[in-house]
Design a protein around this nucleic acid. Structure first.
Lengths: 350, 350
DNA sequence: CTGAAAGCGCTTACAG
DNA sequence: CTGAAAGCGCTTACAG
């Protein structure tokens, strides 16, 4: 009992085990196991004795130990690998995953990758070494083939936001291209002919899709693609603000801006406000954000639904855990064009 | 090998174990264990043989199984219990915890309690049943005494945002009272004498502290506390907007508003904009929020630093895990008064 | 330097 | 209805 006592500091009181409960209740470990797991076929008398001992010892079963021995081998935990737990997109997605998992009494291990391939692999490895029952991943690496063994071992994998490469697996995506295209159509309809593209890192697949949608939109509207109006690789608010300022001060400045992502949109707004042009230049953002409708002008956006993505991904995952063995599914969620004002500003006079 | 084969669907390929690696490498399990854990004293020849087998079998050690046997009993995972993983405060805090934990190669189990005591206990129980190495908790329950056994068993506990009740443990708090008091002083300095309080659920300890700060501020500035200007129990944007509208339409309406929380501030802004009063009524919010400085007027706030809270909490926790056995510490983080414009609007003429 | 035996906390597969 | 023995995947504590 006191074998682990530390001579220097107060010893910790070791946690009670199944064996301790059995000893106190005067039954076998197997009987305690039955009671704790709610199995039928135990005398009410013994059930009471076990319950009493459990509560006296404040016994907490060791779920890891039981998972180790159980035939299902389930740990009742899933891993969620996201871009950045602090950003609104990732955190809304995570919360939706949590809500679905919670109904199944499953816990969430979560981590941020920050656009770093190494980190993606390190997190996945750490999660699989804990034998999570499944993984939801917003992939950043260029190849997810390293997950093949994991899939073959029966761990369901669902990718969100971006498609996996080098691996066939379930995924849940936003229709990035259609969303961007719609924004361009909307701006063209108001009369814009010089619509700039402000894009995130060009290596990001979703950024590529949004750029493709921008190009298609221009084409469909009979507008030329002006390379001077295309800026890639904006990853922070400051990046975007600087690029916007430069663009608007240039010869033949655009009359409308399409910002391919949250932070880029905010950077563009910052620049527009500094230049006093927020009512004079149209702006469309990809991704909605809190307070977009309290700004002046209110900000028009192509909205994704991160909560719906998280929910869909979690539901796919749990279907797999329930035995669904169909071929990989690909869920494409539509975006919503939200007209609030900034996207409807007409072109000014040249 | 094929004992678990399922006749109906493709069988999963069972994951390789230490035993499999040992067999393939032609060494004992103990030797594989040594290599995998980087222990010295193994012939380079055998190290190579083991490494080869590990990579051929794509062997992933089972961390739960090893934790079960290890004397330290560490699982290299901590639990984080927060209000709502989707809100900016919780998610910024979580991300900071993650960054500290990541350096220690420790994973995060996370969950939301949504102001629900039952959920707090259920999450804590689920985490402890997985034998997390420590817990960071933003408590909502009125009593955390149920965690005593856990503490005695040696699991470090750090509370954030709110103080634990019925339990002495480390905690990291914002100085809510001082922050609210400072806001009132600021508003009074500009000339306001009728400053309304818009508060969150009165049962929330931090709301109580902010209300106390509001009262103290009024007292110190020689202003009367007008019960008609105090509204409690606003928990959503809509609640706050409605209350603000009612307040501003009433006889002897306030000339300044103190909003005790994020969503309440946003609700107040919504109402002010609808009434066209955003430039005529002063507003101070507790808690900063993204875009506060892009609104018109820019929103003055008492800023907390959720990332600093998360970092401090995680650092406390890891100090405990490193053996620190001092008495519980209480870290009180100061707030920052950020003057942006809305808090400096002077009172209009009555 | 290496490995056989025992055991972490629990469940399985039996036998009674 | 109940329990003794074996074993999940790994590390400990030894012995050689």
């Amino acid at each position: 009992m006191t074998e682990h006592a530390d001579p220097v500091t107060t010893p910790y009181r070791p946690r009670a085990t199944l064996r301790d409960v059995a000893a106190m209740a005067g039954v076998s470990m197997k009987t305690v196991s039955r009671v704790v797991n709610g199995e039928a076929g135990v005398t009410p008398q013994k059930v009471d004795a076990v319950r009493l001992a459990v509560s006296r010892l404040d016994y907490r079963p060791n779920v890891s130990a039981s998972a180790l021995r159980r035939s299902s081998r389930r740990t009742a935990a899933i891993g969620t690998v996201l871009e950045d737990l602090a950003n609104p997109f990732s955190s809304a997605l995570l919360r939706a995953v949590e809500d679905v998992a919670n109904e199944k009494r499953v816990l969430i291990l979560a981590g941020s990758v920050d656009e770093d391939q190494q980190r993606e692999r390190a997190l996945v490895r750490a999660f699989t070494e804990r034998r999570v029952d499944g993984l939801i991943i917003a992939p950043v690496g260029e190849d997810q083939g390293y997950l093949r063994t994991e899939m073959e071992a029966g761990t369901p994998l669902v990718f969100v936001d971006r498609q996996p490469q080098g691996l066939l697996a379930d995924c849940v995506l936003s229709d990035n291209e259609a969303g961007a295209r719609n924004a361009v159509h909307q701006l063209a309809e108001v009369g814009h002919r010089r619509i700039a593209y402000l894009g995130d890192l060009a290596i990001i697949p979703t950024a590529q899709q949004r750029f493709a949608g921008y190009q298609r939109g221009l084409l469909e509207c009979g507008l030329p693609l002006d390379p001077a109006h295309v800026v890639h690789d904006l990853h922070t608010i400051d990046d975007a603000a600087r690029a916007t300022t430069a663009l608007l001060r240039s010869e033949g400045a655009p009359t409308a801006l399409f910002a391919s992502q949250n932070l880029v949109t905010i950077g563009a707004i910052t620049a527009l406000q500094e230049l006093g042009l927020e009512q004079g230049v149209a702006l469309f953002g990809f991704d909605d954000f809190p307070l977009a409708d309290l700004l002046k002008p209110r900000v028009s956006v192509v909205a994704q639904d991160p909560a719906a993505m998280g929910r869909a991904a979690a539901e796919l995952l749990f279907e797999r855990l329930d035995g669904e063995r169909d071929r990989p599914r690909r869920i494409l969620l539509p975006t919503t064009t939200v007209l609030r004002g900034s996207g409807e500003i007409p072109p000014g006079r040249p």
